[in-house]
Design a protein around this nucleic acid. Structure first.
Lengths: 243, 243
DNA sequence: CCCGGCAAGATTGTCGACAATAAGCGACCC
DNA sequence: GGGTCGCTTATTGTCGACAATCTTGCCGGG
């Protein structure tokens, strides 16, 4: 059920880049999995040329780890890295919220409020709203980032950080275990945007992300961040290719 | 640990990536220049395969703009983008300074202070300290970023943003026209780090970068602070380098 | 029994050639 | 005379093959 599937990027390299990124982010390829070029090439039905270009791009995005003459593996990242990312998100998305309070159009804000309404309905309908809320949360943040109208910031956040966030979420099953509260916080942020209160929007957004981070820290034990690299070699065989 | 960043990489693709990036950042290739693959391949003495991989990586770093089936050009970026970048630097390097105040070792801080001493001497020796101060400024910021001991932040700043900053500096000849003042601000930041005052370090760093941004804005006559998001792709006319 | 060197296998890195697409240009039609 | 269509050409995209390097298993020596 993919909406707007195709960036039908004209070139094969771009398409395999997108597909590979999706497979990594969605957890179809487990972190640490060794990716043989020949295998991937036959899997995606392309030659090794475009595949290597895609790999280099994913490597730039820190989704793949490559060692020259050895091979490429799906980036297996520690909990500490996730915490680092959340700290950065706090700074960057706080800034995005502040900018959004000024630069967002009325239509954009209205649409955002509508989105929150949908989330509330979904919340009312089912308790098992993990997946929807999870995606919805991303959607909410996406819109505010876009609302900053700062192209560089948008690229950095959406093109550079959010893929990692999504990968972590799937990996750790970091389902928002407090969707109720998160939704309330979203609502507050939206209210600040509606009243064009930039400072308040930034503060609330920073708080929101900070709480999410604390939640993760508490959920996964404590912050023994450094020595947490489980090097268990995952078997390369059972990689499912979800269409 | 390798200190020389030049061409330490074993593979041709990595080396041509580094060399191409250097040529772009240092202004050897003017923004807007169309890069033919065959020409570049012969210039760097490699085949088109590794070259294309390097191009894809530079494209990810926003140093190259590529249009499928059309070609690749050196990213020609507007002044507005530079302002955006400085806003982001303000948030990110402010955070870096705050973290550095806590996580930097005494040795690192001491070395930083020594570096500032060298800058002062250079400043005393010659008035035409543009180049040294320029590189020195980068060096100062580099060290504080590294001092944050936040790997993701370091990657994002040094690997993702600073190349653009350097490119802009060469392009606009944005030489620090107030090295005296900048050096003073650096000194203050270092003092805050010495006294482990995280909050102060962040505030001073944010101020420092904010002033640099204002300086650029004033220097280039673009007084419009709010509407810097000129979405219209203002082609920098004179760089039409077609053969 | 353990360690170091060596060879075989496999995988990655690189290259040259072929195919597909878009820009440039001229001729033809309105 | 202007506009549009089709062809030419150059450039990019893709592919298969060759070479370099790392890994792995084996053999011999200490």
């Amino acid at each position: 059920m993919e909406s707007t599937i195709s960036d039908d990027s004209r070139t094969l390299a771009d398409r395999v880049f997108t597909r590979l990124q999706d497979d990594i982010v969605r957890g179809a390829l487990l972190p640490g999995t060794k990716l043989g070029e020949a295998e991937l090439a036959s899997r995606y039905g392309v030659s090794r040329g475009p595949l290597r270009e895609a790999i280099r791009r994913l490597e730039s995005r820190k989704l793949l780890e490559r060692i020259p003459h050895v091979g490429t593996r799906v980036a297996s990242l520690s909990l500490g890295d996730l915490i680092e990312i959340y700290h950065i998100r706090e700074a960057l998305e706080g800034m995005a919220a502040r900018l959004a309070a000024t630069h967002m159009t009325d239509a954009e804000i209205h649409s955002l409020v509508e989105l929150l309404g949908q989330h509330e309905q979904q919340q009312d309908l089912r308790e098992d709203v993990a997946y929807f809320q999870r995606e919805g949360d991303l959607d909410f943040h996406y819109r505010i980032i876009q609302g900053s109208h700062n192209g560089t910031l948008i690229d950095m956040l959406i093109g550079g950080i959010y893929h990692m966030v999504r990968m972590y979420r799937y990996q750790f099953s970091t389902v928002a275990n407090r969707p109720q509260r998160a939704l309330q916080e979203h609502r507050r942020i939206a209210e600040a945007l509606e009243s064009r209160d930039a400072e308040m929007a930034e503060i609330l957004m920073r708080r929101h992300i900070s709480r999410a981070r604390q939640n993760i820290e508490a959920q996964h034990g404590l912050g023994a961040a450094d020595s947490f690299s489980s090097e268990t070699k995952q078997g390369p065989g059972p990689v499912e290719q979800s269409k």
